Amino acid sequence: MTGFDLVLLLLSFVYALALGHLLSRLGALLVARDRVRFSGLLALAMLNAVTQVYIGWLAMWDFRDVESWDLYTITLFLLSAILIYLMCVAASPETPDNEPVDMEAFYWSNHRLFYGLYLGLLGTYIAMTAVYLMTPTPELAVQQSLGNVPFILTSLLAIFISARWAQWMAGLLMFFMSAGWAIIFSHTLG
């Protein structure tokens, strides 16, 4: 088993917990749908959280050729997985028995937390780009760092402008940029 395999195994547990948490809360919302006040913004945040789990896992492929894993690198990867888990928590409300669930209120009380965690994740991703210097594609270090700028601006929009249009714009931009990243990244697999 290589260092990459060990790190991926550790992160896979955190990703599985994140996805499991969000999906179990989503399932509870579906079962209690008669008591739920739906929010498109929270549904979009949940979709974005799932997308981040997928991207976090998928992005690991770039690091398969790293031969030496030091404590700094492993810690950054673990921190990124933990931030993704916390994003899933911030996007998934509890469904208490026989009580109404207001997804809209949950969104508005947690949107800054959600996007703040995402901003922290992006900062961690930028710190992680130094690892690219130990791969066959060191040019990805600068490319990935600069590629995070639109995502950072989107997060700042959602954190500092609470207008509904800004929240929708940030959520949609986050989703489409993330999906675009995954599509572009898929061409490097093989």
Rank of each mutant, 00 (worst) to 15 (best):
L19P: 07
Y85L: 15
F13N: 03
W61E: 14
P100Y: 03
M60R: 03
V7K: 04
T73I: 01
I152V: 15
L117V: 05
M60Q: 13
G3E: 03
L113E: 00
H187Q: 14
A130C: 05
P138F: 12
F151Y: 06
F160T: 13
Q144H: 11
L58G: 11
A49I: 09
M87G: 10
L173K: 01
L122N: 12
W165N: 13
V50P: 01
Y115W: 15
M103Y: 05
M169V: 14
I74N: 05
T137R: 14
M177T: 14
A81H: 04
G56Q: 06
Q167Y: 04
P96I: 11
W57D: 11
I126N: 13
Q167R: 07
L189V: 15
A18W: 11
L121G: 05
F185Q: 13
D70T: 09
G120E: 01
G190K: 09
V131Q: 07
L86R: 12
F106I: 00
S12C: 05
F13H: 06
M46S: 13
L157A: 13
F176E: 03
T73N: 03
R33D: 02
T124N: 15
L8M: 15
L122A: 04
T73R: 12
L44P: 02
T137D: 08
R37N: 12
S178A: 07
S68G: 06
A91C: 01
S178N: 09
A28T: 02
P96F: 09
F38Y: 11
D62V: 02
P93R: 06
I161Y: 15
T135C: 09
I184T: 13
Q143Y: 12
F151R: 04
P93G: 09
N98L: 11
S92I: 07
S145W: 00
D97E: 15
E94N: 08
E94W: 05
G27K: 13
D65W: 12
L189N: 04
M134R: 14
S68F: 11
S68V: 14
V149E: 09
D70I: 05
D62M: 09
P100S: 10
L30A: 07
S178E: 10
M177A: 02
A32T: 02
F4E: 03
A170V: 06
F77D: 05
I74H: 01
S39G: 04
V89Y: 09
H187A: 14
Q143G: 00
E67K: 06
L11P: 11
D34K: 15
T154L: 12
L76Y: 08
A130W: 07
S24T: 14
F151G: 07
V36W: 09
V89T: 07
W181M: 02
G180K: 00
V142G: 06
T2I: 02
F38D: 02
S109D: 03
F77S: 08
L121I: 04
L119N: 01
T137N: 09
Y115R: 10
L78A: 15
L30K: 11
A81R: 02
Y54Q: 07
L172K: 01
